[in-house]
């Protein structure tokens, strides 16, 4: 199975192994990656699993639906490649994925 990397705002890197049928948010939670709160438990309803996807990977993370877009607009930390980690389905195609954590979750 492949691996993915979360990079905290201060540069600390966390490598995690890809597991089947889990969102990117669950990967972070299960591997104790700090900086992802996931207050709503993956319902796309809190915005506290915000990540900024490395530009070259952004296209591979799947489509953003209107709910996710709306929640993302509410975070002042938003960037052009922002996503909610609970809405990213992880498959082997994301082997090597790099995402950055914002300084703050809203």
């Amino acid at each position: 199975m492949g691996r993915m990397t979360f990079i905290e705002h201060d540069g600390t890197r966390h490598e995690v192994e890809i597991e089947a049928d889990k969102s990117l948010m669950q990967h972070a939670a299960d591997n104790m990656v700090p900086g992802i709160d996931a207050d709503c438990g993956g319902e796309c309803a809190c915005g506290t699993c915000h990540v900024i996807v490395d530009e070259q990977w952004f296209g591979k993370t799947g489509a953003i639906n209107s709910n996710e877009k709306q929640m993302l607009e509410m975070t002042p930390e938003g960037a052009p490649t922002s996503r909610l980690a609970c809405q990213i389905e992880v498959t082997d195609a994301l082997d090597g994925l790099v995402v950055h954590l914002p300084e703050f979750q809203m």
Binding site: E73, M74, P76, E77, E103, F104, Q105, M106
Partner: peptide, 10 residues
């Protein structure tokens, strides 16, 4: 969006 920055973490 017009006012949320006042309580933004930054």
């Amino acid at each position: 969006q017009a006012v949320q920055n006042v309580v933004a973490p930054k």
